[in-house]
Design a protein around this nucleic acid. Structure first.
Length: 500
RNA sequence: GCGGCUAUAGUUCAGUUGGUUAGAACGCCUGACUGUGGAUCAGGAGGUCGUCGGUUCAAGUCCGACUAGCCGCCCCA
């Protein structure tokens, strides 16, 4: 039989148990932080009607949407009527349009689900990937921005990150900058994507590219502005090497000052600058305070942003760990009436890439399929092993039962290879004495404990007499105690988690 | 979508100017060990050299296309 290709489709991945454990761990941490901020869970279908998605992400986005051909007789035409969702924000806007009257005045939701983009795969970039979104609908207050930034920051801190930078900018400020520099309106978009590359290609690179796109006069004005910002940064570096918190604060203040100067009385632009000022002030008491960094060169590709835009970066990742912003007009595209909204999305895959490379995952996460493994001595003792496993499971332990009456060596080797810290043996000798042998796989220590349960038949075990229950309980307790103490002695046992 | 690099055992990699039967380490399996993993020793299995085509008496080696991966560009979580 010819073997079919076993790789998953390009840009898609299988998740083996270790991978799933990592993912569930990260998702669990993020979820609990989000809930701590009062966000509620939402889920939406993988597939949306194609017109729901088209035209929401800009030119580039449209091309990256995975489209689903019409079924049946229309199949040949190549026409698509459905598509896989490209992000979680547009589906949210649709949901708000649909259930407006059933949702609270301020709808705070989180959503952790996969999205699909027909992008070219790269490090930390896949065609199917999870986003961890939080959004607040119904308020124009900058308190929302501050809360979202704080939540994302808390989540990353809870995962063990300490070196991320939260870059913040504002679409209206960008428009103000463009107008003041005299850029034609249809040139603003390309100018922004060029400016966004500032940290990558440097001022000279930007100057060159801008000049080609928008002409020399506007370019000079803009580039001079960003040159000045860069010199502010350097000055701050020299001024306060030690107190980085102070540096950030001073630098943000200086950038705000320059923005006010440059934008002047430009209506949209100056309002945007005030928004930025509010966000920084409101974030003062949060975990994000000393990580926020105003960055007038931040643009972000998605076309639906209208106000603040936010991105979180770490130095060892080219892309971002997450991003978001305000999109006050998106819901209006579904509802006919604008609902203010702002959201942020953490990229699960990128978080995992960085955490894996930095070895930030708790060690017991990597391999701890079970707390203890019960061996099977021979065909005749299978029932006793099952009874023992059952009893321990009832106590909340994660118990692996070796499925075959293999040689002991094989069973031990198996337990060892899976990193299971304790192995239980019910051999002829143990059973003859009503005992049970426990081996600590880390230390090699092995002891025996009396075990009344073994004297009862498996059938009766389910509903054994009261005194036997008591004895059995006592023995289980002794066993659990040993497992726990053993776990303190050997490092392996950190993964022992008796039922809570 | 564009440019560069890479593809040999489960894994990491050797493999000479093209030349018989493609190697190592680690891992895996079996045994020494008829009640015990990790250590040691002995043995064993495992490769259509990414795929297809071309050059040649002869291709893992040279050429082309395709596929997958890595790095840049573009874009993004």
């Amino acid at each position: 039989m010819p073997s079919a290709k076993t790789q998953p489709a390009r840009g898609m991945r299988d998740f083996l148990p270790v991978d799933v454990r990592k993912r569930e761990y990260v998702i669990g941490v993020i979820k609990s932080v989000y809930e701590r901020y009062g966000f509620e869970p939402l889920e939406t279908p993988a597939v949306e009607n194609i017109e729901t998605l088209m035209g929401k992400y800009g030119e580039e986005g449209n091309q990256l949407i995975f489209k689903i051909l019409k079924r049946g007789e229309h199949e040949k035409t190549g026409e698509a009527d459905l598509a896989l969702r490209y992000d979680l924000t547009v589906p949210l806007a649709r949901v708000v349009g649909q259930y407006q009257n059933e949702l609270p005045k301020f709808f705070k939701r989180y959503q952790i689900q996969p999205v699909w983009r027909a992008d070219r795969p790269a490090r930390g970039r896949f065609r199917e990937f999870y986003q961890c979104d939080v959004d607040v609908l119904g308020s124009r207050s900058m308190v929302v921005e501050a809360e979202l930034i704080a939540a994302a920051s808390d989540a990353l801190v809870a995962l063990g990150f300490n070196d991320f930078v939260i870059r913040v900018n504002h679409r209206q400020v960008l428009i103000g900058l463009g107008d003041r520099a005299g850029i034609r309106h249809d040139h603003i978009e390309p100018a922004l994507t060029t400016i966004d590359k500032l940290d990558k290609i440097g001022v000279e690179g930007v100057e060159k590219e801008l000049s080609a796109r928008i002409g020399p006069t506007s370019t000079t004005k803009l580039v001079d502005f960003f040159r000045e910002l860069a010199s502010l940064d350097q000055a701050a570096d020299i001024a306060s090497e030690e107190a980085s918190a102070m540096k950030e604060k001073a630098l943000n203040a200086a950038i705000l000052g320059r923005l006010v100067e440059f934008v002047g009385d430009h209506e949209k632009g100056s309002r945007g600058v005030e928004d930025l000022r509010s966000i920084i002030e409101l974030s003062e008491g949060t975990s994000a305070a000393r990580r926020i960094r105003l960055d007038p060169s931040l643009a972000r590709g998605l076309s639906y942003y209208t106000g603040a835009i936010i991105e979180i970066n770490v130095s060892d990742l080219t892309g971002s760990l997450g991003g978001g912003g305000r999109y006050d007009n998106l819901v209006g595209m579904f509802l006919g009436k604008d609902v203010p909204a702002c959201g942020f999305s953490l990229g699960l895959e990128r978080i995992i890439v960085v955490m894996s490379e930095r070895e930030m995952f708790p060690p017991e996460l990597i391999s701890s399929p079970a707390d203890v493994m019960v061996t099977i001595w021979n065909e005749d003792s299978i029932a006793e092993s099952i009874a023992l496993a059952t009893e321990l499971r009832r106590e909340g332990l994660r118990v692996d039962l070796y499925p075959e009456a293999d040689k002991m060596g094989k069973q031990f080797k198996y337990a060892s290879s899976r990193g299971i810290p304790f192995v239980l043996i019910l051999g002829d000798d143990e059973r003859a004495h009503g005992e049970l042998a426990i081996k600590n796989m880390k230390s090699g220590e092995q002891i025996r404990l009396p075990f009344e349960l073994l004297k009862t038949s498996p059938q009766r075990n389910v509903q054994h007499a009261d005194d036997q229950t008591v004895k059995s309980k006592r023995n289980i307790e002794a066993l659990l105690k040993w497992l726990r103490n053993g776990s303190k002695a050997g490092e392996a046992g950190d993964s022992i988690k008796p039922g809570a």
